[in-house]
Write a protein that binds this DNA or RNA. Structure first.
Lengths: 282, 282
DNA sequence: GGGCGGCGATACCCTCCGGGTATCGATTCC
DNA sequence: GGAATCGATACCCGGAGGGTATCGCCGCCC
């Protein structure tokens, strides 16, 4: 199977529409139809159930969609990492570390300092990204290493090392009656009238249905909480970022959050090994 | 990058010889040279250092070799799993479980029985393979799930669930003076005169240098030990397989061995989930 | 040291595959 | 029932990919 075929299939499977998929790929619709037919014939498998009005994925099709995305990421990663290896060999080497904007407040500067103090340390570019993008960046080679927060981020398919674990706190407006309590449980926070939990976007940019406000980053979220429009349960380490208008109350039965440093398997980079070593020593 | 280009590059990088690589790929040498040149031009990276007498990998080249192999495995896995999903939807579904021949003696039948007793269980094909082949089979889609033994096998890049941990024992000829001891430490076994540790083959079939005999599977190994030509340190669970002519003595400071069940990430198979559930319940 | 042999690069040709345009056939909706 | 939508089909063209012949370079051996 050629990556071109796979790219074509993924486009059609995502759009469920040959015309739009062709447009996205920058080709005309007929060659796309033909390519998909050819792919199906070669695999000996029906991937799409087409009528003249609709396109549906078969079981095999949805497996190929999931696996194909991963495979395309792997190919892209190979390409990117080869390019970067060439750069590192001649010009300026470096690492790209990715983490969620707003998360791992204290840990990140400590890690960077600890690594920078090592002999042979290379420059580290920090990439702050939105929710759920880190895995993608790590998988397709745009980043070398990530700080992930289990159980929110899945570290599936990566090598990891645990760095620290912490409890979670409910973040409430300072004026809220519950803000003075010594601790809460998740049921208390979930049921707060007028302060629903926010909704985070999926990877494709759409939001799950529900009552809460749609948020895209931590700044938005904290502002909404201060305005009395939302509440949230966040890792303890967010505390230093909270203004005077917000209160944090430990939530005893919330799952603990583990910060892990994650990197793609079969990585033989000296610099990456050093960074991981520095991280585990903190 | 197309998979064809990647396959071509991997072939050349493995053979370090354009002629042989072309032969292996079933094409003539000139188009292969051209394809590699084109790939280098598109990437903007020198992958191979060629003289008319030798071909060497550059740093970028060896990165692309490692990453490219993984990417090709991923593409192959996508293809295979799509095919199998189609089979499972229409004809006979099934799972392929792979484990090292000779290992996980008691565990495997217990697991298969426990799973078979579940409602909705599908047939499980068991694939016994040699050392270090399991990761490959799992990665390229020929197997759905594996039993791995850490720290011998690396579970890098897979989702895993720990099943059990055990100590290790030294396996010696029954007549050996140390066979009667209650326990040993690794230094004792490493230094046994005339009973060197065996050498296992690498993935490419070559053996590391050293004094011990070359072995390929457990049967060979046990026979060599019985003959007084070797000794070995193996997980405790090998005990039931030992004949009367062999003795097992606990090695206190050997690393403990953890048996894990591993499967590729983003697996959405109902059957696989059931098998993992059965495994964790044991 | 000069001829030989091995190996990668180059030159040139040809075939077929991937892409484009025009059009058909089916289905749905007004 | 006609128009609009959408995937499939028919047909054409250009270029990418593969083959053969040959060159140029460099160790090696008699």
């Amino acid at each position: 199977m050629e990556t071109r075929e796979l790219r074509y299939f993924v486009a059609v499977a995502e759009e469920l529409h040959f015309g739009r998929a062709a447009q996205r790929l920058g080709i005309a619709q007929p060659p796309l139809s033909r390519a998909i037919r050819q792919l199906e014939r070669r695999l000996g498998v029906t991937l799409l159930e087409r009528t003249s009005r609709s396109v549906l994925l078969t079981e095999a099709g949805s497996v190929l969609l999931a696996e194909g995305r991963a495979a395309l990421d792997a190919v892209e990663a190979a390409e990117r990492r080869a390019r970067r290896a060439a750069l590192a060999a001649t010009g300026r080497p470096g690492l790209v570390l990715v983490t969620k904007a707003g998360a791992s407040g204290e840990l990140l500067p400590k890690l960077l300092d600890a690594y920078a103090a090592e002999p042979g340390a290379v420059p580290v570019d920090v990439l702050l990204c939105g929710i759920g993008e880190q895995e993608r960046l790590l998988r397709d080679g745009r980043a070398d290493v990530a700080l992930l927060h289990r159980p929110f981020d899945s570290a599936n398919g990566f090598d990891t090392e645990e760095l620290c674990t912490e409890g979670q706190v409910a973040v409430l407006p300072a004026w809220h009656p519950l803000a003075g309590r010594a601790h809460l449980c998740t049921a208390d926070v979930a049921a707060l009238p007028g302060l629903p939990m926010p909704r985070w976007p999926h990877r494709d940019g759409t939001y799950p249905p529900g009552p809460g406000p749609q948020v895209r980053d931590h700044t938005q979220l904290l502002q909404l909480i201060a305005l009395g429009r939302a509440s949230a349960i966040l890792p303890e380490s967010c505390r230093p970022q909270l203004g005077r208008d917000l209160a944090a109350v430990p939530v005893l039965d919330a799952p603990t959050v583990t910060t892990v440093i994650a990197w793609p398997p079969h990585s033989r980079s000296q610099a990456l090994a050093g960074l991981v070593r520095a991280a585990t020593r903190i």
